[in-house]
Design a binder for these strands. Structure first.
Length: 512
DNA sequence: CCGGTAAGTG
């Protein structure tokens, strides 16, 4: 049976049960349409006009709620039972399927497909290539290749298997569901391909980490587009193969004369900073100003600010930050600069920018708080750090995660406020506590020579992770530093007894 | 009056 294992119950009863309140949201003309629709059981000429109106509404009001409202009205008015389907109705259903196929509930598209189409015999007007393209998108988004392969069977049955758009969507679906063999098989057997088909394969393979096959197909591809180049460059970036990403980028721009888009820039900036290519950063920046990427896409601007900071130039980053008009700065813009200032030791300025951001009416989230707490920690701004932490919890009702705690403990620990640090560590819920916390405290104890607390921290570390050798060494050193050579000796013996290898160069700093 | 592809901005 067709899609038999999908929950067969129409899921819209919840929505239609509050039909009255939904109606009040609907545009006047749409309400009119539904009145006519429910009154007439036959096809009234004016209905067609109104159906076209629905289509225009589907375009004008692209919010998800709007679609759900329209959907529930269609169901309550019996629209889905009208047979045979004509082209206008099909467009309406396809539009709904397209909208549902995107996040956050793509399975709704499949439910709708089942509800509307499953009783229709192939001889009547029913599906078209659009329907199946959207459905494959939905399967890709729910990561369900089982349903996908069932619908694959449907396109064979209903004669869409050699439609380029449908097949491309099918290949994409298989690759996005990590069904490599199925995806490649369909691709190999396609009688007609276009550039999108190739791009789907290249990006699908890079997403799966198969850069060699992706590169092979990329090299074979006729008429590479910017999407192809971006896809393959992204593949290398994901695998941290930045030199190769750089060389492909150069080849693309210098040899092929293909210019990057916003997406290429966003992807590629990672490689720019990992390779420290400051010249390239500056020319990309100039290019992005010239093309308008910087002024039109805040994500690009944010990424440039961040890249400048990570390449060591807080000055350029800050300059760019200031060039962004107030109204365009979003939470990430602010978080980026706060974190950048913190990284460059400008704690006071980071704190000031946090406050400025609040004055702008933006609501900080956990990342913003982490950045500002980090600034306080590095800058020794204990009281402000404490205030921020409390504000986060009490005013913004953000539950601290392990990184926030770690930051606070680091902050207290650095200046020798070990009791405060330990107290905070003890308050961390057991389900999120990790060994890094106690190591941070242990590092602080070691630095400030508190042997008793070291013991307690060690005990916690023993509980959480018995074989981490660095802790033994630190504890041993701490005991030695405190004159407790016997204890230090004991620790060394424990280490020997456990065959613990001392791994040099492990940082105790808070990184994760 | 509907289609298929690229994304680490903190």
């Amino acid at each position: 049976m067709l899609l038999g294992f999908i929950n067969p119950a129409p899921r819209f009863s919840l929505i239609t049960s509050s039909t009255r309140s939904i109606k009040s949201f609907l545009p006047h003309k749409l309400v009119q349409f539904f009145k006519q629709c429910t009154r007439s059981h036959s096809h009234h000429p004016s209905l067609l006009v109104e159906e076209e109106h629905i289509i225009s509404l589907l375009h004008k009001h692209p919010t998800r709620n709007r679609y759900i409202q329209i959907h529930s009205q269609l169901i309550t008015s019996g629209f889905h039972r009208r047979r045979p389907l004509d082209e206008t109705q099909l467009i309406i259903w396809n539009t709904l399927i397209r909208v549902y196929s995107q996040a956050p509930f793509p399975e709704e598209a499949i439910n709708l497909y089942k509800l509307i189409f499953h009783e229709i015999t192939p001889s009547s007007v029913s599906y078209d290539s659009f329907t199946f393209s959207f459905l494959f998108k939905a399967c890709a988004n729910v990561q369900n290749p089982i349903i996908g392969s069932q619908i694959h069977a449907h396109i064979v049955k209903f004669g869409f298997e050699i439609h380029v758009y449908v097949q491309t969507a099918l290949v994409n679906m298989y690759l996005m569901c990590e069904c490599l063999n199925e995806g490649i098989k369909v691709f190999d057997e396609m009688p007609v391909r276009n550039h999108v088909t190739w791009n789907v394969v290249i990006t699908g393979l890079t997403r799966m980490g198969d850069i060699n096959l992706a590169r092979h197909i990329f090299d074979d591809m006729p008429g590479k587009t910017i999407v192809s180049w971006t896809g393959i460059i992204d593949g290398y970036v994901r695998l941290n193969r930045h030199t190769e990403a750089l060389s492909l980028f150069r080849q693309m721009t210098l040899v092929e004369g293909i210019m990057p888009t916003e997406i290429t820039v966003l992807t590629f900036l990672t490689s720019v900073w990992k390779t420290g290519s400051f010249d390239l950063l500056q020319s990309l920046h100039a290019y992005s100003v010239r093309t308008g990427f910087i002024s039109s896409d805040i994500r690009v601007t944010n990424s440039f600010i961040d890249t400048y900071v990570k390449c060591g130039s807080i000055d350029y980053g800050f300059e760019l930050f200031q060039e962004v008009p107030r109204k365009q700065k979003n939470l990430i813009t602010w978080t980026t600069i706060i974190s950048g200032l913190a990284m460059h030791g400008k704690a006071k300025e980071a704190v000031n920018h946090f406050q400025e951001m609040e004055n702008e009416g933006l609501k900080p989230n956990r990342v913003t708080f982490l950045s500002v707490l980090n600034a306080c920690s590095h800058g020794g701004l204990i009281e402000q750090g404490r205030e921020f932490f409390e504000k986060m919890v009490n005013v913004y009702q953000i539950i601290p995660d392990i990184k926030h705690y770690g930051c606070m403990i680091d902050m207290f620990g650095r200046v020798g406020m070990l009791e405060e640090a330990e107290k905070m560590a003890m308050e961390i819920p057991t389900d999120i506590i990790n060994v890094i916390i106690w190591r941070t405290l242990l590092g602080a104890c070691s630095y400030h020579g508190n042997a008793e607390m070291s013991e307690r921290a060690m005990k916690k570390i023993f509980e959480l992770e018995r074989d981490y050798s660095g802790d033994y060494v630190l504890l041993s050193n701490t005991f030695s530093g405190a004159g407790r050579f016997d204890d230090a000796e004991t620790i060394r013996n424990i280490m020997d007894g456990r065959n613990v290898l001392k791994v040099p160069g492990l940082s105790l700093s808070f990184t994760n």
